[in-house]
Write a protein that binds this DNA or RNA. Structure first.
Lengths: 256, 256
DNA sequence: CGGATTATTGACGCTTTTCAAATGCAGTGG
DNA sequence: CCACTGCATTTGAAAAGCGTCAATAATCCG
């Protein structure tokens, strides 16, 4: 249930069994949500903190002219709204991009944890700082790289985040449930351009689709093309390394 | 010395006199730094947390091709690197844009405060979440708005941040020490385009320069033009309101 | 006053957007 | 099984926004 979260946190610190247990006990209920439904809306202050167990979600804002700007993708192990332990209202909304399995943690359980459990408090603060760091990188990505490198960069990030949460057995792929429209809204480029750029990445042999799974054909070349430096994800090299090594091997041996 | 910081925090919670005192005692030394100098570099783990007392700084990253991407401006009251209380290395650099007066807080003082002083711990977590929220808005700004609105949006934010830290007596202005190059690096547009867009804002009577001070001529119109919604700054309306009201009045009475 | 930044202007080209239409694809009901 | 429907993907052509290059003016500072 919360393995994706604990796997992710393990990249930063060593959780004791009792910390994990205490987290597990905080889960009060589990809900299923349909694609397109909102989990939390801007200006709300929800009573529960939501953890994604299965499926993808996104943080987004609507602009005056009706355009939707996606500011983050959420995958299993991501928490939607710890902000709410500190802030008095959401400054953005969160919705389901696919059907979602969600764990609900009562806000007071989180607040108790901030007071009583130093390890878990640090862990949650850490996820928050990593999100901030990720936003910085998304900003740099959007302002400084052309659309094709931008998209490649996103794929690099998503692959490593799937490694960190140990969501896939094979290191060269991850599920890609997004439509090109949903990709476009997160890259800040038009749907038409997204389509063309995506074709280019495929034509150049960097990535490939197998149904709704994205396969990285050449990790080294994709990273280089995107100017991807994973520092900002704050993962500990030695803990993610196994995955990375196997995919490096895979990338060079598969040729192409 | 730390008034700008405490003023800013007061927008979120009520600090007791003893909390302020405990913060004040954490300041171990004060340094002056020249414009252009780095305060912290990427990958470092500094022993001190740095607070800006006077002057402007910025967070930035360099790209492969040598371009500098500015990801945040830091003004008095802003803390450069609380990240470091949790993370093991900086994922970006921080440098001085103007001559800077900096307060140094030993890292262990911050860590002690996280353990012992619940109020201050919340306060620091709050600043971190607001920075995250601001990064989201910068991302939306960069990906979804044309260059002129983007620049207008930045000016709106900087004005309100100066209100929040009570840095200016007059509510319609703030110091603008940045060169157009430094503006361009933060907006993700070229220097030439920045120049043209800035001229447009002046020609349209939205802003004006008085030496190195930026004057907002029509706050209501600037906000509307930029599609600026201050929710993301998480300031409490009633505490900033005095400033905002006076500038609304100012904006409409000055005509133009 | 002189050298060095910083601000401004013009011309041209490329990336990306917009509009519009076509094609493919999955689910539904007859 | 097939037509129908709605959504996602793909393609083309023209226009807009913005970047680059290159040169000139203004400003700052010692």
């Amino acid at each position: 249930m919360i393995e994706a979260l604990t796997n992710k946190l393990a990249n930063y610190l060593d959780l004791e069994q009792e910390d994990i247990q205490s987290l597990r006990e905080s889960v009060q209920q589990v809900e299923h949500i349909e694609a397109g439904q909102d989990i939390i809306r801007v200006d709300e202050k929800p009573e529960y903190v939501h953890l994604i167990v299965e499926g993808w979600g996104c943080r987004y804002k609507y602009l005056e002219d009706g355009k939707r700007a996606i500011v983050a993708y959420l995958i299993p192990g991501d928490v939607c709204d710890i902000h709410i332990a500190m802030l008095d209202h959401m400054d953005h909304s969160v919705s389901a991009l696919t059907p979602l399995k969600l764990a609900y943690l009562p806000r007071e359980a989180i607040e108790r944890c901030f007071r009583d459990n130093h390890t878990l408090a640090r862990a949650f603060f850490w996820t928050s700082l990593v999100e901030e760091s990720t936003m910085r990188e998304w900003f740099v990505n959007a302002t400084s790289r052309p659309a094709d490198k931008r998209l490649a960069h996103l794929f690099c990030e998503l692959l490593m985040r799937h490694w960190a949460a140990k969501l896939e057995r094979r290191a060269d792929r991850f599920p890609m449930p997004l439509t090109q429209n949903e990709l476009a809204d997160a890259m800040g480029i038009s749907l038409v351009h997204t389509n063309r750029v995506l074709q280019r990445l495929r034509r150049d042999g960097l990535v490939e689709f197998e149904g709704r799974t994205l396969i990285v054909l050449d990790w080294a070349r994709l990273k280089a093309f995107a100017d991807f430096n994973p520092t900002y994800l704050h993962l500990q090299e030695d803990k993610v390394w196994a995955g990375e090594r196997s995919v490096e091997a895979l990338g060079s041996s598969s040729g192409r």
